[in-house]
């Protein structure tokens, strides 16, 4: 299945392109990209968050979900086909779900705030922003753990190293002959 990972990556990229097109063609909202602050020059305000997401909220959610899928797909592509074991794929699947859950929590708590106008705080930031800041930063930790701790299992095994060293020796012999 992972032999064809490039096709999945291609499908995700095309879907993201189509989503961008749909967003460009969606009903426009004045000042969706922000407007100048009335009192403080240089500051931009977002104003009505609900209005800004009215036509594109679900499209933006799907766009970022696809982006997270693309991230994981690219990480799978970066690992040699012969090392894409069940264990590796399970780890990648778990990482993908972890990132999606964080993204969902960020998006849904923001939606909740837009409805109620109320929010709790976590470590200095409103909860939706805390999900964005701490969550997004931590979201890729499983990928980093898989890379660092799985380095000799998935990324560059001892067999890979031996094979590469043999390649280097072959290249050295070839250059001597030439």
């Amino acid at each position: 299945m992972t032999k064809h990972v490039i096709y999945y990556i291609f499908a995700v990229c095309v879907s993201m392109g189509l989503l961008l097109l749909m967003i460009v063609m969606a009903d426009s909202v004045p000042n969706a990209g922000g407007q100048p602050h009335a009192e403080h020059p240089g500051m931009v305000i977002g104003a009505d968050g609900a209005a800004r997401l009215a036509h594109i909220g679900s499209l933006a959610f799907v766009f970022n979900s696809l982006l997270l899928t693309l991230v994981v797909g690219l990480c799978v592509l970066g690992v040699s086909e012969r090392h894409r074991s069940q264990k590796f794929l399970a780890g990648m699947g778990g990482s993908w779900l972890f990132m999606l859950v964080i993204w969902w929590m960020m998006f849904s708590t923001h939606q909740e705030f837009l409805l109620t106008g109320e929010t709790d705080y976590f470590m200095g930031f409103p909860v939706p922003t805390a999900w964005q800041m701490y969550g997004t930063w931590l979201g890729a930790v499983p990928l980093i753990v898989m890379y660092s701790y799985g380095f000799r299992t998935f990324i560059y095994t001892c067999e890979d190293e031996a094979e590469f060293n043999a390649l280097l020796e072959q290249a050295a012999r070839n250059s001597q002959q030439n």
Partner: peptide, 16 residues
């Protein structure tokens, strides 16, 4: 002052 500025998408909005 402006809730969107400190919400996850900030003043520039979701797609930015």
């Amino acid at each position: 002052d402006d809730s969107e500025a400190i919400m996850p998408f900030g003043s520039a909005g979701a797609m930015a």
